[in-house]
Write a protein that binds this DNA or RNA. Structure first.
Lengths: 207, 207
DNA sequence: ACATTACGATACGAGTCCGTTCCGTATCGG
DNA sequence: CCGATACGGAACGGACTCGTATCGTAATGT
């Protein structure tokens, strides 16, 4: 009923109102969302995920899921939102070092699962503009962090003054995305990937 | 003619033997594969595609599909293989111009549908190493074309002698992939995208 | 003519998942 | 203790897809 996608379980979380009866088990939320994430990471596409499978993997009754989420989209949205780790905080000393750090994080072990999940949500995103928007909202903060790094680099003179920030964002992140989701070029080694990428980007390819 | 995906259903495709009876309608092959592609482009994930839906959209009986493909993977594989256009042929005069051409083609209108289809196949690729291999085999020739361009650029002195070719491939294609499939950064304009990307890559971002 | 195969269409039993409803039990406030 | 709500589990009818089989018809070889 009052389950609005991202709103927390209890509807009137106002201080005065108190719900009678047995309270909902917070661990169930966690178990359910974790089950959804796990199924997605296994290669189940969004619409291939059955509520039954989620309930089984979470060790939960179907009713418990239906009680908390109005529909599958809401459930998926929450599951995705849960995956976001804390925002990275660049040191601010060297744009180059900050970018290396960000790229490294984008290729970290933790992102492997995230990439699989994203991949399995893609068909849904092709179909639904709403899901597209959810993804955009989830990733925009990280783009903004990188923007700040680039802007600071320009201020300090470490980067060109006429740098196209948006395009540069794409040039930094695009390769990692392609590798994470598609393993697009299996010949690119993992060793020193972040450093090589950033340095190549900074110095250019021309002779 | 002999569709050898994995296991072709037609038995005696031997040279001397001629099959008696009514021959198969070649147009049915086309209609079926086109229907599969259309469904994928609509955002149907690979396993969400039902043979019934394919048959209906192709104007074909289910039996006709089962008669020609042993399983869904074989059908999908053929559908993907059909989408590949002809390989691009760089002029060979200027590495920069050739790269611009390749990037432009990667973002062309025709790739829009291809990207959607790829996106909808991703869950299957996460799950199945076989599907991964199919994708790799389908894209490798295009990577090789780009490799040749880079090698020639190095020979002519237009590009750095110590250029990491594999990494550069990724840096050129990754951004387009991210944009095509995820619309990752909506702020990157379409105008002159290819030229800006290649030139930024060549000249570098450092001051 | 006749055997043979392909065709579109339809029907079939089996299986899965849907969303809901009902259990018996558990856990809260009053 | 009592009313209220949540829990896991099981069952429900309905909808859908599966892969196969069987129609009557169409198109080829001998």
């Amino acid at each position: 009923m009052e389950r609005m996608t991202t709103v927390s379980v209890d509807a009137g979380s106002g201080p005065g109102r108190k719900a009678p009866g047995r309270p909902r088990d917070a661990r169930a939320d966690e178990a359910i969302l974790e089950a959804v994430t796990a199924l997605l990471a296994e290669g189940q596409s969004a619409d291939a995920i059955s509520i039954e499978a989620v309930a089984a993997k979470a060790g939960v009754g179907k009713a418990t899921i239906y009680r908390r989420w109005a529909n599958k989209v809401a459930l998926l949205t929450d599951a995705v939102a849960r995956m976001k780790g804390p925002l990275p905080e660049p040191e601010g000393k060297s744009a180059r070092d900050d970018l290396v750090m960000l790229v490294k994080q984008g290729r970290a072990k933790r992102m492997e699962r995230y990439s699989k999940v994203t991949a399995c949500l893609l068909p849904e995103m092709v179909r639904s503009a709403e899901m597209q928007a959810v993804y955009q909202a989830a990733t925009e903060p990280r783009r903004e962090v990188m923007r700040q790094v680039l802007r600071r680099g320009i201020e300090t003179g470490e980067l060109r003054a006429d740098l196209d920030i948006e395009l540069t964002l794409l040039m930094i992140s695009g390769p990692s995305i392609a590798q994470n989701m598609l393993n697009w070029n299996p010949n690119v080694p993992e060793d020193g990937y972040a450093e090589k990428l950033v340095d190549a980007l900074l110095r250019g390819a021309a002779a």
